[in-house]
Design a protein around this nucleic acid. Structure first.
Lengths: 346, 346
DNA sequence: CCGGAAAATGAAAACGTTTGCATTATTGTT
DNA sequence: AACAATAATGCAAACGTTTTCATTTTCCGG
């Protein structure tokens, strides 16, 4: 049984107006268009508000305005090193714009996204940021029907239907693979997460495999493995792979998998990079400090978060698509200790 | 210049009511008290709503109700392995209660908390969850003045002023230290994060040092170091410590520091646990899979998140303090490969 | 088939703001 | 000092719901 709490000591705009001896309209303006009210009046109002401990009710305002000052962020998961970085940067940048973040995770279950977007819409968000390009049709149409700005982040495609801010994951996958090929590696294994309904992983894998092809390599099926996003499971999978038939190098779909693989090497007494080279993708916090440091590609998570915040706020204010519509944010290749050149076997 | 977007195709309750040929009151009831409207009517309404693509505006309802269905979570940072786990569990559990999470991070700057709490209050949250016990007076009083439920999570004290759900960090600190002492370690170094305005770290350190004292140890000042929450910096700090004057064991304030220390050992060619034992606190994702596995204390992050969600929702519904007011959630000691017993030097 | 109780529905008044329009105060100009 | 022009303020009508109270409909036993 719900019991409504009494609105004990919460003064409203009316109380402030009374105390400052002005109308509520003036109080409202003092907050929303400070330039419109004379300095002395404003001071009186500020004083009154402070005395009373007034906190305005933005929800009430939202009713009249078109804007709630709240932006939705929908991610696969919060509990992920590199998303977390992006999320934090996004939230912080939003605060700078006097906006608040509503966040929800769907755990890679796209069908959950519709419920989530719906719930966001019920809260009258000013915009939504989604991760990647794989989405169901319904949530997208719900958003466009209501003219709520949407952007896709993390991945980049020059021809995406949604405005996007992110790195080209195909290139990232290609980059690390090329690095290995350039160094003379020919027997390369590929460990990627499940790619269904995950365009980032899919693009990375495509990029990696294409690069292999361009390098004259055709990795046999047993060299292409699906691996969960989890250090422990990656480690276990890698142990089997490494024990059976050691490749000369391993391309990992992300740094977490790479970390698992590296630990598997430690556990098996294999030396990295002497016995096997490892590359990751992402450059998670800590990847640089592994022993040896992980060769990987740095995805600028914080930058993407900040840019996304700026873009979605601007879109909600102008009502226009962002400029540029497709924004590629550069990644950088980080060569560290986990890879080394090999002489091709004669 | 702001340009208000037109409310293009967004039907309101009025449109639904018209199409279903009932009054708006009935539509409202169909959503909020389904039992109150006859099945055929309800079906007509649902049909109409679906046809129109109606999404209710909870903000408008909030105006009349006391509740917004939104709960605030204020954390030091989102970008932290173990908080992220808690956050995700919290958000998920909230969704189960048909609530949404507003989250904000203050980056260990408590003075920011007041701005954050204020901003939450402006959004009419139904409750706030804070991390730990170190808080400024103002945000707390703002909350109590408005009768907004608050709970503190993560840490536990049987006499805290705020209701709390968390583990006893003093005990956690003591537990890992005792483990080392029991195994014969006498020269123990302590690496803890800055403890000002961080009661969790402070309690862990207190616990660790107390345990040392009870074990007859009085660690000299050069064995007690302050270490940032960062793998790289911890690694660097540890390199110096280990090179100068090797202790037989190291107690780390959290698993991130422990990870840095472990990498420092690898880098220096020290074998763990042969040359030095390491313990952490937290049991972050991945700590089990390090080589060697990290001996640590598992703090049940997800459980805390879930319990917190349940508690804050219940408080907002009943208006009563939670039961129990002080909830200790057990941690478990995880003995793994990073520690070993030593024979005391004769 | 009726009367009365119970259940379902409707009409209208909130909720706390913002803003268009009307009104009043303040300038600056001769 | 008087007048227009302009700036500051107030009044009252939104905004999209929920809920109270009154009214109508349904249900049921006689």
């Amino acid at each position: 049984m719900k019991r409504a709490r009494s609105r004990k000591g919460a003064p409203g705009i009316v109380e402030v107006a009374a105390r400052a001896e002005v109308s509520i309209a003036t109080v409202s303006r003092a907050y929303n268009h400070p330039g419109m009210v004379r300095a002395p009046t404003r001071t009186r109002i500020e004083r009154a508000a402070a005395d009373l401990g007034y906190i305005r009710d933005r929800m009430a305002g939202t009713l009249h305005n078109r804007f709630s000052g709240t932006v939705g962020l929908v991610v696969p998961t919060i509990d992920n090193a590199i998303f977390a970085e992006m999320i934090e940067a996004f939230a912080q940048q939003l605060r700078g714009h006097d906006r608040t973040m509503l966040i929800a995770a769907h755990g890679y279950d796209l069908s959950l996204e519709v419920a989530i977007v719906r719930s966001l819409l019920e809260r009258r968000i000013d915009g939504v940021v989604l991760v990647g390009f794989d989405h169901e049709e319904i949530p997208l149409s719900m958003l466009t029907q209501r003219d709520v700005p949407v952007i896709s982040i993390w991945n980049y495609r020059e021809d995406s239907a949604l405005p996007c801010i992110g790195s080209d994951n195909r290139q990232a996958g290609a980059r690390v693979t090329e690095h290995l090929i350039e160094r003379g590696h020919r027997d390369i294994a590929f460990l990627f997460p499940e790619v269904t309904s995950n365009d980032r992983a899919r693009d990375r894998m495509t990029g990696a495999l294409d690069a292999a092809g361009s390098g004259g390599l055709t990795p046999p099926p047993e060299r292409i493995l699906t691996c969960p996003y989890d250090i422990g499971e990656a480690k276990q999978l890698a142990r089997r792979l490494l024990a059976e038939n050691l490749p000369s190098a391993i391309v990992c779909g992300n740094d977490i998998i790479a970390q698992g693989v590296l630990y598997a090497c430690h556990a098996l007494g294999l030396r990295v990079p002497r016995d096997v080279s490892i590359v990751g993708i992402g450059d998670f916090r800590g990847s640089a400090h592994l022993e040896p440091g992980l060769t990987t590609v740095r995805l600028p998570a914080r930058r993407i978060g900040r840019l996304a915040a700026d873009a979605i706020v601007e879109m909600s204010e102008t009502g226009l698509p962002p400029e540029p519509f497709h924004q590629a944010v550069d990644f950088s290749f980080m060569e560290r200790g986990s890879t080394r050149p090999i002489r091709p076997k004669a």
